[in-house]
Design a binder for these strands. Structure first.
Lengths: 149, 149
DNA sequence: CGCTATTAGTTGGTGCACAAATTAATCTAG
DNA sequence: CTAGATTAATTTGTGCACCAACTAATAGCG
């Protein structure tokens, strides 16, 4: 039995938080997987579609800011969404550097199908909306904490 | 302005939760990155080291259960840790199927260095231990929720 | 005992995540 | 007006995550 110093104590608490965060994220994504599969979407692709269902068109830069993702991650992801026939990628005529990502009619219609997913997830989790909202608030505070200075 | 139906409402709440979870996880890992870099570790490798600092030896299966990771993920990761000189991989003599992953002396000594990380992270976050503990509890409840049935 | 099923780990393939280097377009100082 | 700086995307390379197929060892049943 080793002595519990302040260092090992902090190490343990912290370990639990970063463990929990990684595992929770992967576990929840795992819940989405079978629901997204029929549409041919991965979870990150689903997040991009959610962003586009809210606002269109979006540039790679704008998507990157919304999803906190690298252009190097989004670029090939968007090509796969285009290959699936859900989005259209076109250079902006006023600024040829930026890309205008828009939904295709098929991509727009997919939203109706996607709306069945969240209730299924919430039901599967069997947690109160209230508790989920509280968790969301805590996570947003954590995200804010990681981003100051 | 489109009408807020129950479906779009749920879609939004949920979107926020899965957004927040993914982004929080990646953001916190991003905080670790510069601290782990001097040791040559990635965050998943750090989690494996934490597990080994607590208990040794561990098999791939045991590590997979602790970290909720696939053997297909762990197998190459452990080889990289071995190449770094932090762990040793050896088949168990009583059951040649299982691998006994142990720390090397260098890997064991690395713990002292690693103990500096959590206080640095907590300081960087600037959040109460209490709030972090509460978040941890919520995350554990969420993980449990994803895993029943 | 020997055959079959199970178990542990590895391998190969796809896609995400991030960093660094690259390319092309636009902006801005002089 | 043009040279250099800045900006937006793409590309390349490494490593993680998951799945499915495979290999080898062990367990268990007849």
């Amino acid at each position: 039995m080793e002595p519990v110093t302040e260092a090992t104590d902090l190490l343990k608490l912290d370990r639990q938080v970063c463990f929990a965060l990684s595992i929770a994220s992967r576990s929840v994504i795992g819940l989405y997987r079978p629901l997204l599969q029929p549409m041919g979407l991965t979870h990150p692709q689903y997040l991009v579609m959610l962003a586009l269902w809210e606002s269109e068109p979006l540039s790679v830069k704008e998507l990157g800011e919304l999803l906190q993702l690298d252009p190097g991650t989004l670029s090939p992801l968007l090509k796969r969404l285009e290959a699936l026939g859900y989005v259209h990628r076109e250079r902006n005529s006023h600024d040829e550097r930026t890309l205008a990502v828009t939904l295709t009619p098929v991509g727009r219609r997919l939203r109706a199908e996607a709306e069945k997913i969240p209730p299924a997830i919430v039901a599967r989790l069997g947690m109160d909306i209230e508790e989920l909202e509280h968790l969301h608030t805590s996570l947003m505070r954590l995200i804010a904490a990681t981003q100051r200075s």
